[in-house]
């Protein structure tokens, strides 16, 4: 194989982590144990893979870039517990990657333009995921963990907190990447195993309520929700303060409201 230097592909938005200590800290935030399967999204040069392989039972890397994939295969193909899939994570049938009887751990350091689609994709299969550790832009991390009443509290916060307990593990300076991106980063851990115990009667309805509410976040819920087909008569029968605004409702309150509308 040729040893020509690899240039980050602008088209894939690649910014590579070049600091080993940060890499170790990120894997430490996931802390895989010998019985765990780790699905790593976008291993790149394998800087996280190297620290994960000695700890986990199995590491499944999903890499979209063929050249990187070849390099990864060369470097880590010799490890019995490493498995590599070349392809687009967003287009994959995730359940086919997972063993039916155990929950996987998800790890990712991916281009920032694709982070929220990836988060939503993992949320869809949350029953099969124990937790997820991902490095994302700091402002987005702050939105994910924001509490009701905060400026940053929005649709990302509600959907993340509905199904997991998200926490910022630590912040990462933009200087540890090559090339240097124009935003700072944070490492976030979504703990699905500690998802709040919520009695959600109708998941589709709940999604509709949350999305419609935040679609016009400055408006009172009365305004945003009464436009939805069939909602108005139901809203009239419920005792609820519809003059409230979506940014003040906790996740539990969204669930209660949606359950009562479903009755």
């Amino acid at each position: 194989m040729s040893q020509r230097p690899f240039r980050p592909k602008q088209s894939l938005g690649q910014n590579f982590l070049k600091d080993e200590n940060v890499a170790r800290k990120i894997v430490g935030a996931l802390a895989p144990s010998p019985e765990d399967t780790v699905v790593e999204i976008g291993p790149g040069f394998g800087v996280l893979t190297a620290h994960t392989l000695p700890l986990a039972k199995r590491v499944v890397g999903v890499e979209i870039d063929r050249h990187l994939s070849a390099t990864l295969q060369q470097r880590y193909g010799g490890h019995d517990n490493f498995e590599l899939i070349t392809g687009d994570f967003l287009k994959m049938d995730l359940l086919s990657l997972f063993a039916p009887d155990s929950k996987v751990r998800v790890l990712g350091n991916i281009p920032y333009h694709i982070t929220s689609p990836v988060i939503f994709k993992v949320l869809e299969v949350r029953e099969h995921v124990q937790d997820m550790v991902m490095m994302i832009q700091r402002e987005v991390a702050e939105r994910i963990v924001a509490s009701p009443g905060c400026k940053q509290y929005g649709i990302l916060s509600v959907f993340s907190q509905l199904h997991s307990v998200p926490k910022i593990a630590f912040h990462v300076s933009r200087n540890v990447f090559n090339p240097k991106p124009d935003v700072d980063s944070s490492v976030v851990r979504w703990d699905f195993s500690r998802a709040p115990e919520l009695d959600i009667r109708d998941h589709d309805l709940l999604r509709t309520v949350i999305r419609a509410s935040f679609n016009q976040r400055r408006k009172m819920l009365r305004k945003s929700l009464q436009q939805l087909p069939g909602f108005r008569p139901k809203m009239e029968k419920i005792e609820f303060d519809f003059t409230r605004r979506p940014e003040d409702l906790s996740v539990q309150e969204f669930v209660d409201l949606s359950n009562r509308i479903s009755e």
Partner: peptide, 17 residues
């Protein structure tokens, strides 16, 4: 241009609406 394309996406990720 490319830089502003990325900036537009970053801003959209940062703010609802």
């Amino acid at each position: 241009d490319l830089d502003s394309s990325r900036r537009c996406i970053e801003l959209a990720e940062q703010h609802d609406g």
